[in-house]
Write a protein that binds this DNA or RNA. Structure first.
Lengths: 130, 130
DNA sequence: ACCAGTATAGGTAAAAAACATATGTCAGTC
DNA sequence: GACTGACATATGTTTTTTACCTATACTGGT
C-alpha cells in the first residue's frame, strides 16, 4: 500500500504551517474545453493551448497531453483534422468538431451543471455551520 | 506512450453510438466532504461512508481509499481519532476535526467557489454559442 | 550562424481513483 | 450451534489521469 505521511498532492499543498494552497479542479476539464473552443471555429493544437486559459485552465495544461488528447478524440470520431499547408510557419494540424463531438460537448455541459449543483449544495452546507 | 483507441475513462463512457455518460467531478472531493461532515460532529469511518452520498458522492466512494484517506489526514494533523470502546458492535475508530483541519476546510470552500465560477464561465460561453 | 517563438510529438513518473480481497464483530435465524 | 448478512476496519494491486521531461523541425529576427 501507499500510505504516505506527507503526500505531495496536486490539489493541495502546505505553504507554511496551517496555510494551504487548495485547487478544486474538475476531472478531465481540458476535454470539454477543447470541444467548446472547437465549436466556435476550427483551430490547431497550439492555438487551443493559447486559448485554454480563457476557460480557467491557467498555466496547467500539459502540451504533450494536449496533443495526445486531440489524437485520441480524433480516433473516437469526436474531432477531425488535417494538415494545414496554407498557413505560414511550421506545419499545423487543424482540428474541427464533428457532429459526435458536438453531442459529447452537450453531455459535458449537462454534467457540469450537475457538478455546479453539487458544489453549491456543499457550499450551502458549509455556510450553515460557520 | 499510451494513445489508446478507446480509453476506458472514468469520467466518460460510450453507452451506444453517439450516446455518452459523462461525469464532471471535482478532484479529491471526498476530502473536503469528510472535513465538512466532521465539522458538524465526530464520526467514525463507516458513518462517514453512509453520509457522503448527502454531499453528492453517490455510490462512488471507495471504502478502502476512505480509510486510507482518514489515516493520512490524521498523519497531517487535520483530524484526530481514537478507538471507541463504548459503542456496541465491532470496534469503531471515531474521528474528529482539528483546528488545522478546520482551516483546510475553509481553504477548500474558497477553492470550490472558484471552481463554481470557472464552471459558470464555461456554461455561459456554452450557452452563447447554441 | 544563432536564438527565440511556433508547432507537433513521444517517454516516463507520480498522483488519484477503482477494483479486489482479508479479517473480525455481532444479531438474527434456520 | 452453524450460518448468514450487516457492520467495521484495513491492505494489496491495477487502471486512469495528470505532471514532468525530452526530441524534432520550421521560421523570423539579430
Amino acid at each position: 500500500m501507499t500510505h504516505r505521511r506527507h503526500p505531495r498532492s496536486r490539489s493541495r499543498r502546505l505553504v507554511r504551517p496551517g496555510h494551504w494552497h487548495v485547487h478544486a479542479r474538475v476531472e478531465r476539464f481540458v476535454e470539454p474545453s477543447l470541444l467548446l473552443l472547437l465549436r466556435e471555429r476550427p483551430l490547431h493544437g497550439y492555438e487551443l493551448l493559447e486559448r485554454l486559459p480563457e476557460l480557467g485552465l491557467e498555466g496547467r495544461v500539459d502540451i504533450g497531453n494536449l496533443y495526445r488528447l486531440l489524437r485520441s478524440l480524433e480516433d473516437e470520431g469526436l474531432v477531425s483534422s488535417e494538415w494545414n499547408a496554407e498557413l505560414p510557419g511550421p506545419a499545423k494540424r487543424t482540428y474541427e468538431l464533428t457532429a459526435q463531438g458536438r453531442r459529447l460537448l452537450d453531455r459535458w455541459a449537462e454534467a457540469l451543471r450537475r457538478a455546479q449543483d453539487t458544489i453549491g449544495n456543499f457550499l450551502d452546507r458549509y455556510e450553515e455551520g460557520r
